[in-house]
């Protein structure tokens, strides 16, 4: 069988056409490797080990990112903090996306009272400033990593409801969906084959963006003393702790902040790349 020159290429091909996508993927890959090092304990120092002897030292061959006021190795702590930040945000976004997208699609497709109920509920959650709501939940639930994840998930669920519901409302009015009804297809098939594939692009992009926000939220919570608790390390907590000594030890503030920036920028770029790759209209050019 001869090959059709216009035979569609996979999504990966189109993703690799996007510069921001490639840069984002490289940044992200780097951060994931860093976190994996922490998971497997491949760290030059114990991130919790205090050693007053080496307190407040600048970057050196022994302490690549320097040490803090307790003599802890900032490189090891940054890696461990990255692991913790990613764990919290990935689990938070997974929960929020699963629940939010399901509710959003059903809400948009079913309409009527169910839609009303879901929209009102998410409006209520939306009405609170995100960090304030997360704060309230964490202070009620407690502040272990899964409780923090849950709090962030609650805050982000309405975003996914909204992101999924809007396109469903548009797509279900498209002629190609009406045709499937005339052809006598079941609702499940219509949802799965004709609506879901046409609303995934904004959802996938939202996942990438939400991950970066979740990292910032987790950092914010830790910064305020409600996320990760000392002596454990998280990027936000490290920035918070470094504040008081930043004037004498810039490295204590700089490196964790740089890690946050890299991962947030990386995720945003990945989001851009995905948006380009998933849009068939952009592909055609």
């Amino acid at each position: 069988m001869k090959r059709d020159p216009l035979k569609p290429k996979g999504g990966f091909y189109y993703y690799m056409q996007s510069t921001s996508g490639i840069v984002g993927a490289i940044l992200l890959l780097f951060m994931v490797i860093v976190s994996l090092c922490a998971v497997f304990g491949w760290l030059p120092h114990d991130p919790l080990e205090q050693n007053v002897e080496f307190a407040m030292q600048g970057p050196s061959s022994n302490f690549w990112f320097g040490t803090d006021e307790f003599g802890r190795d900032i490189f090891s702590r940054s890696l461990d903090g990255m692991r913790r930040s990613l764990t919290v945000s990935v689990s938070a976004v997974s929960i929020a996306a699963t629940i939010g997208v399901t509710l959003g699609i059903l809400s948009g497709y079913l309409g009527r009272w169910f839609d009303q109920l879901i929209v009102r509920l998410s409006d209520v959650i939306f009405a609170f400033p995100a960090i304030l709501l997360a704060l309230a939940i964490v202070s009620t639930l407690g502040n272990s990593w899964y409780q923090t994840s849950l709090a962030i998930a609650v805050v982000y669920t309405p975003i996914f409801i909204r992101v999924a519901r809007g396109p469903v409302l548009t797509v279900k009015e498209m002629d190609y969906v009406k045709v499937t009804r005339i052809l006598g297809f079941s609702s499940l098939r219509i949802l799965r084959k004709h609506i879901l594939p046409n609303v995934t692009a904004p959802i996938v992009v939202q996942v990438a963006l939400s991950l970066s926000w979740a990292i910032l939220t987790e950092s914010g919570l830790s910064f305020l003393g409600l996320g990760t608790q000392p002596p454990n390390a998280s990027l936000g907590l490290m920035v918070s702790e470094a504040q008081s000594i930043a004037a004498f030890a810039w490295w204590a503030l700089f490196f964790p902040s740089a890690f946050i920036t890299i991962v947030v920028v990386g995720l945003n770029l990945v989001g851009d790349g995905l948006r380009d790759a998933l849009d068939p209209a952009r592909r055609s050019s």
């Binding site: 190609y176 045709v179 006598g184 594939p197």
Partner: peptide
């Protein structure tokens, strides 16, 4: 449904783009 079918005006919106 299978005996009565409809062809819409706009061939751009009546095919699933994916």
């Amino acid at each position: 449904h299978s005996q009565v079918q409809l062809v819409f005006q706009d061939p751009y919106s009546s095919l699933n783009p994916r």
